[in-house]
């Protein structure tokens, strides 16, 4: 699905050159949930933004669904982006548009016929469980509901790949849980490949099949989630895991929230 080779990204800042990513290579297979974790400032956002060329890499190649993104002209890149959904920490919804209009937005961008848009929006509202909020405005929604709109919007054009940049980091534990369940459903039942980045290890641990660890712009470790969390090799990974261990006071994700979720019909 994704093939990243020798990816590097420098930012030119008033203070000089800042290397955010150096020599990163990995692949993401079709149908998997690929987690990227690392401390704040490690370069996670920059990396995920390189996967749809919101950020242009300084060096290296990014192939998505077989296409080298660097070779695409603006129109082709736009078409490629329609096949890559993205969700964000702060949801980034249009404030003056209703839930339904927000979800319809990418379909309008892709110039779908009006009738098809209407049908697709109804389907998406159903997938994320917000049919009764179709005419609400974002400011009338809770954080979790806003992220559901974000997810519906990202899925609108039926992408095969979903990028998630700290999508649960602004949400409380219980809501995080329900959003993760939704992402799992999207991955399992709709077959969408997911790249999820988070500084919250519990999130990555719960949902990822494979995990990559970023530290200071470098990919220090990559492997199946079970291995990374039980037998970390890189010092950076070990440090990350000890710093985030429950003894140090991070929030537990499993348990606790389950009954409430069941009550709301999420699981």
């Amino acid at each position: 699905m994704i093939e990243v080779k020798n990816l590097g990204k420098d930012f030119i800042t008033p203070q000089g050159k800042l290397t955010a990513l150096r020599n990163i290579s990995f692949t993401v297979t079709k149908g998997e949930v690929f987690g990227i974790m690392g401390p704040s400032g490690a370069g996670k956002s920059t990396l995920v933004r390189c996967l749809n060329f919101l950020e242009r890499p300084t060096s290296g190649t990014v192939r998505v669904a077989g296409q080298d993104l660097a070779t695409l002209n603006p129109r082709e890149l736009a078409r490629a982006r329609q096949q890559i959904g993205m969700i964000f920490q702060h949801f980034n919804l249009l404030k003056l548009k209703t839930v339904a209009q927000n979800i319809a937005f990418p379909l309008e961008i892709a110039q779908w016929p009006r009738e098809d848009i209407k049908k697709r929006v109804a389907e998406l509202l159903d997938i994320v469980g917000l049919t009764d909020k179709a005419r609400a405005y974002p400011h009338q929604l809770s954080g979790g509901q806003k992220q559901r709109v974000g997810i519906a919007r990202a899925l609108a054009c039926r992408p095969r790949l979903l990028l998630s940049d700290e999508a649960t980091s602004a949400l409380d534990t219980e809501t995080t849980q329900s959003i993760l369940e939704l992402l799992q459903h999207i991955n399992r039942d709709l077959g969408v490949t997911i790249v999820i980045i988070s500084h919250e290890l519990a999130v990555i641990q719960q949902i990822s099949h494979r995990v990559a660890v970023l530290s200071e712009g470098k990919l220090v470790e990559i492997g199946p989630a079970a291995d990374i969390f039980t037998r970390p090799h890189a010092t950076a990974t070990k440090r990350l895991i000890t710093m985030n261990s429950p003894a140090q006071g991070t929030r537990p994700l499993r348990g606790g929230a389950q009954p409430a979720l069941a009550k709301r019909g999420v699981i």
Partner: peptide
Amino acid sequence: GVIEAAQSMGAS
């Protein structure tokens, strides 16, 4: 962020 979201959808 909203502009970025639109860009991520392939908006011109």
